[in-house]
Design a protein around this nucleic acid. Structure first.
Lengths: 258, 258
DNA sequence: AAGAATTTTGACCAGTTGGAAAAATGTTAG
DNA sequence: CTAACATTTTTCCAACTGGTCAAAATTCTT
């Protein structure tokens, strides 16, 4: 128990799925693994950021790396993760990995910026012209599904936040703020028409983020507390049901009518 | 922006209050800084864990270190933090720090175990014989206050969770689970008597944790989104007010009666 | 003030880390 | 087949890491 050997310190070392060929790093739809490997075209690496089209092979390798990096970064954060670790999970040598991403920061930046886009999609999708309550309910549902299906992305984000969002603070302050401002206005509009209860739209959004992401970020705790019987896959369903009630009617005041 | 010099990487480097004499490391009531320095008694260090009484000077130094370590660990996590960093924040040399805590892990362990005790106090304090709704409301209020007053402790905890709670998994699985089980039963009892709405007690507790700790763990985000006008100290008051409404009546269904 | 105990420091170490260079090994177009 | 390019591996390095140790400085006791 007291045998931290500097390398591979925590019990939760990410070494699960190692470099599964076409592992998708981001949350985009998986490529439906069935296409045969077409002979790779001219790559021309070392100029990744320049203008070259980027061959399929390169893209695949990068995906493997990003996938591995997500495993590692999402657990240990940027500073707590090492290139060696990522390389090992990705199943390649460190210099080979550095051939695709010249510096550690590059991998992280890619991960983070790709994340931010997809992470906010559900919020962006809230339709001002839709039916208020169904819109919000489906938003909550989608966020819970993301916590279930993309916990690593959630943790990567959480790690970044805990550190003060050093790499994305400007995006947070501009893009995210603008988006939330916009949606807050939508919510206020709905409140004005009496379609939903009047409340603080910002804190409403915060509480949806908090409650849903909790199931990804604090997964260990959730499972431990729920125990063997209730900690299985069904926990997300239970959570969704509970959150429905929480946001719809609250969970403290007993029902007025029997 | 791309000038990570390996040392001091993130913008949010903790270097705020450096070793303020009697900085209290844990959340216990501050010693009401007024007592004159009584002449320190015989310390006898290097045997910290043994049986010696531990002089006041030693306790003060350890507090300074723990305070600094909390600054650092809460941001970068265990692996992402370095002894040098902590020593610098604590305003002492690394060997000097190691004189008080022979290994990095020792500091972290102390921090974590002290944390766990106080962190759960509010939950522990929920009184089965109290008035249900006030009990829960004051629980929520206390948790929000903790997020405001002890954000570093919250982040330290969050960091640990994100990594799979490697250092406290057994405490989580036993002590925490037992406590939550107990309080869940209390809640269920209240539901049985119709004092509060019937709902899932475990997820109710999760949602309180999530919503309150969010204001500490995702503080950067919260402040950025709220902007200059609303992101000030008042945000915790607003949050408390909002959460009150959320848990009491929900925030979606418009009020039945005008 | 002297001796004893404690605290602090400076030098040092072995292992790790991010990364560079270049040689070695594919791969492919002609 | 071979030149030209892409990829991978080997070797290497300087800075950083957690930690040791003995000497020096300080503090305490008497």
């Amino acid at each position: 128990m007291a045998s931290i050997k500097v390398k591979n310190d925590g019990p939760a070392s990410p070494r699960k799925r190692a470099a599964n060929g076409a592992g998708a790093a981001s949350m985009k739809a998986k490529p439906a693994a069935g296409e045969a490997d077409k002979p790779p075209a001219k790559p021309k690496a070392r100029t990744t950021g320049k203008g070259r089209p980027l061959t399929r092979i390169q893209r695949e390798k990068q995906d493997i790396i990003l996938e591995a990096a997500l495993d590692v970064f999402s657990v240990y954060g940027f500073r707590g993760s090492t290139i060696d670790q990522i390389a090992e999970v990705a199943g390649m040598s460190k210099p080979n990995l550095l051939y695709y991403f010249p510096r550690k920061e590059d991998i992280h930046r890619r991960l983070i910026s790709e994340l931010l886009v997809t992470w906010l999609e559900p919020l962006r999708d809230i339709d001002a012209d839709g039916d208020p309550i169904p819109e919000i309910r489906s938003y909550i549902r989608r966020k819970i599904e993301m916590a279930r299906d993309f916990p690593r992305e959630s943790r990567l984000f959480a790690n970044e936040m805990l550190q003060g969002a050093p790499h994305i603070i400007d995006m947070i302050e501009v893009d995210l703020k603008n988006l939330v401002d916009e949606k807050a206005k939508v919510l206020e509009g709905w409140m004005d028409t009496g379609k939903i209860a009047r409340t603080d739209p910002y804190h409403l959004i915060f509480s949806i983020w908090a409650t849903t992401q909790h199931y990804a970020d604090f997964d260990v705790q959730v499972r431990a507390v729920l125990g063997r019987d209730r900690g299985g896959e069904g926990r997300f369903e239970d959570a969704a049901r509970y959150l429905e009630q929480l946001f719809m009617t609250g969970v403290l005041m007993p029902k007025k009518r029997a």
